[in-house]
């Protein structure tokens, strides 16, 4: 374990290859980047440029073919799946394009989940407070199927912030929403980010989202083009 400057997330020479019937396909080709605590950065690029793959690797949801990722000072590429799960439970939150709420649990139970998995005390009180913060204090016991797309994404945001993660990864958080709802979600995401001083890494096509970030990484053909 080593500290890498001030960086909360540090990737070095990340390569991701997959085998396909046509031979080996390189999705990411030697990507290196560094994100410091409290920053909000966007990863942008055309479809198939490798944005989501990069996010998956940075968050430890997938493993690279070669290269390293340090998350909160820990080399997660050295860890096994349970080790990475521990790092995520301690310091990472997620928001997904398709919300990824568990359909069999209510809004409240979905938000309580990360707290319970991390073994925190009084998860119910914190989860209720977080849902109230995203404006869903009245819909605690609704199931995902009983909520609109915007409401589901707000539950997902409450779930992402409730455990007070140091870093939050968001994969196209407004990709499945209309323009007006997107705007509300962007506001919510950034206001909570400010409030909790979270580091935000998001993959997006949405120019409004990109503009709100301090920096952007643009991917093209699996390589970083330049840093803003």
């Amino acid at each position: 374990m080593r500290e890498v400057n001030n960086a909360l997330v540090e990737a070095q020479n990340l390569v991701k290859q997959v085998s396909s019937p046509e031979g080996t396909l390189t999705i990411l080709d030697g990507v290196s980047l560094s994100i410091v605590a409290g920053e909000a950065v966007a990863v942008v690029g055309v479809s198939g440029s490798g944005k989501s793959t990069l996010l998956g690797l940075l968050a430890g949801l997938d493993t690279p073919t070669s290269g390293t990722v340090h998350l909160n000072g820990v080399d997660i590429t050295e860890l096994d799946e349970d080790g990475r799960a521990q790092v995520r439970a301690d310091s990472v939150g997620f928001v997904f394009q398709s919300f990824q709420l568990l359909t069999s649990l209510t809004a409240l139970e979905n938000v309580m989940l990360p707290l319970e998995l991390a073994g925190r005390s009084v998860p119910e009180r914190d989860a209720k407070a977080e849902l109230a913060r995203v404006g869903l204090g009245e819909r605690l016991h609704h199931y995902p199927s009983q909520l609109s797309g915007g409401e589901q994404q707000r539950v997902a945001i409450a779930r992402a912030y409730v455990a007070k993660p140091r870093i939050l990864f968001a994969d196209e958080p407004t990709g499945n929403l209309d323009a007006q709802t997107s705007h509300h979600i962007v506001e919510l995401l950034f206001s909570l980010n400010d409030e909790y001083n979270t580091t935000l890494v998001l993959v997006t096509h949405n120019p409004e989202l990109g503009e709100r970030c301090q920096r952007s990484f643009e991917l093209e053909g699996g390589m970083l083009r330049g840093k803003a």
Binding site: A59, L61, E81, D82, A85, Q86, R88, A89, D90, V92, F94, Q100, L101, L102, L113, P114, L117, A118, R159
Partner: peptide, 10 residues
């Protein structure tokens, strides 16, 4: 997968 992303161990 979602549970894993939220930090659930095996």
């Amino acid at each position: 997968a979602v549970l894993r992303a939220l930090g659930a161990r095996s």
